[in-house]
Amino acid sequence: MSDIFPKWTNWLPLKIAIGAVLVGTAATAGSWYYLTPKYSNVGYQPVQPVAFSHAIHAGQLGMDCRYCHSAVEKSWYSNIPTASTCMNCHNQVLKDDPKLALVRESAATGKPIPWVQIHKVPDYVYFNHSVHVNRGVSCVECHGRIDKMDEVRQVQPLSMTFCLDCHRHPENHLRPPDKITDLGWQVDPKTQKQNGEKFKHDWKVQSSQNCSACHR
């Protein structure tokens, strides 16, 4: 019988096998790196309709986070401030500045400003701000140094791993409740661990690692 297949096809199975392994590894490694929240979410910095700078307001002026995000201690949801909150100062400060045109329009007409959401967990996750903010978890743990950002960007992946890392060892991230909004507050790791353990004990912090804590 004459040769049906040319000689080079002898190496084909081996080449296919090696190729499949390589492609598989690349796909896995690629997905592992590129398709996880750590890559896809961290650094997200969308353009907002109003060029609000946290660096000026929270950093330079030293405003407390909760002045604007007033519901964070009462609700699961930390609210974007209403236009009337902005107008508390801006009806006098920079009151004709074109950068605040949308804010003035919103306060006057009731039309909401379409802010772009940056920090978002999936719909099947029920995160509650109030229980964290009231129990020693600072804003900086999840949101980073907002007080140094001109435009807010996401600094933590907010993936389940990220949440579990803290829930497994809350003593590494707990701080005195009056220092929650002091984003620059820091203490050396040994003292942090010590104080954190004491806090965890005194306050009976039970950071649940079970599914029922967040998935309903």
């Binding site: 896809s40 609700s75 236009a83 306060a107 039309k111 909401p112 379409p114 959401q117």
Partner: peptide, 21 residues
């Protein structure tokens, strides 16, 4: 990236109302 989602706050907060409560 995930589709852009907007947050629409009030212009004036209704009294006694907190979203989520």
């Amino acid at each position: 990236r995930r589709p852009e989602e907007k947050i629409y706050p009030f212009a004036r907060q209704p009294e006694g109302y907190v979203h989520g409560v």
